[in-house]
Design a protein around this nucleic acid. Structure first.
Lengths: 222, 222
DNA sequence: AATAGAAGTTTGAGGAATCAAAGAAGGGGG
DNA sequence: CCCCCTTCTTTGATTCCTCAAACTTCTATT
């Protein structure tokens, strides 16, 4: 049976793999992402391998099989629709829905999920701008530019805030750094490791490199 | 930690105890209600007893402590609000929400639950007419009369359908036997073990004793 | 009262997921 | 080229929940 632990591992493998899609995911990365000791990850990966969800090369690393990726996308779909549902229907704050969805994603049936999807009008992205895979397991991969690498003097719009830490999200919200908001790059200071932008409401915000990496933008579509 | 298994046992003990509130609940009843072998129930009850959730008399039976009852009511509240939410907000059929809620009741946080409660306008009963305990763990106990014992020639209203089997609920729905519907007793045939009622839409329905026991009514409040 | 049968408890074992700690593999610096 | 350090795997143990089956207690019936 697919336990919620298995779902979590597979989801995490998928997310980690996105960071570096070319090479095999090392055990250590997975173990620390799952917050377990390395031995636990090894044991679990063996059962995932036996279930045909990952390809496992001992001491080499792992990679999701097609089946594993489909499962990961299925879990991710549940997670992201739930996040949006919690924000749009139940009025929770976008900074707190990640944790809630983390539990619920293993408990909602497909039937309930599709009702939510319908109620939300088949959304494409969750409250943080993360794309929602389709029920058939397809995900739109859009090339977004981190604010830290964004070219000056171009109009852009925030597409995604790539961090689920409530504290960071609250900071982002307070400063108007929310998906859909337009902005333009005022300046970048390499030595100060900082980026300054002007938002559509004319407020200017300066971010350090770490924070600027997490704000992903796309060229504005007027 | 309170696992969902513990929550299920405590909930089930509460429900079973309602059937016969005066005496201790025998192990066998609990075991069959939980669909486990008797030995499993014994083992589990010991840990419930160690956690102070039940009083356990070996070979005598069990009874919830105050703490156990509070936990049971908390779980029941989650279950019933979820059922109503699934019907009223997501449009699921009342015959199928019990199963859905059975899983979700262990995954939903208090925060999310109270949002649902608010959205539903602090309901008193779930779609089947079962009372919803308050957040403080209080439950309104109303004396309802089974159709099988109902006095003739009195106007009444269906208050509750006490069965969660989807098949029975679908039957009830098809025949208009839904909480809130008014009816009057046309006749009872002791030898045929049957009861005939006329519903408010003038349809008459005849039920056997087993079914009539599950339809609970209250004197009509005009 | 003796005893058969029902009801309940105990014991031994197994699967899922975890950790701690010992052991093996592999790669880079001296 | 060898050793050492990092990374990974193995091993042994633990917790939670379950079952099967042996065993005990109680009750009711003759």
């Amino acid at each position: 049976m697919i336990t919620s632990t298995v779902e979590n591992y597979v989801k995490q493998i998928y997310l980690q793999q996105q960071e570096d899609p070319t090479s095999l995911l090392p055990m250590g990365k997975l173990a620390s992402a799952m917050k377990v000791v390395p031995g636990t990850a090894t044991a679990m990966v063996k059962t995932l391998s036996d279930s045909g969800l990952v390809d496992y090369e001992p001491r080499g690393g792992i990679r999701l099989t097609h089946g594993g990726e489909q499962l990961a996308l299925h879990v991710l779909r549940r997670h992201r629709i739930l996040e949006l549902f919690l924000v749009d229907v139940l009025g929770l704050d976008w900074s707190e829905v990640h944790e809630e969805a983390e539990t619920l994603e293993h408990a909602v049936s497909d039937k309930v999920l599709e009702r939510m999807d319908k109620l939300l009008n088949h959304p494409q992205v969750d409250p943080h701008g993360d794309p929602i895979p389709t029920a058939k397991g397809q995900i739109r991969k859009v090339r977004l530019i981190p604010l830290s690498e964004f070219a000056p003097d171009t109009a852009a719009e925030i597409a995604r805030v790539a961090d689920q830490d409530p504290a960071f999200l609250q900071f982002a919200e307070k400063n108007g750094l929310i998906p859909g908001v337009g902005l333009s790059l005022l300046g970048r200071d390499v030595h100060a490791d900082s980026v300054t932008v002007r938002l559509e409401n004319d407020v200017t915000v300066t971010l350090g490199g770490k924070a600027a990496e997490k704000i992903l933008v796309r060229a504005a579509t007027e």
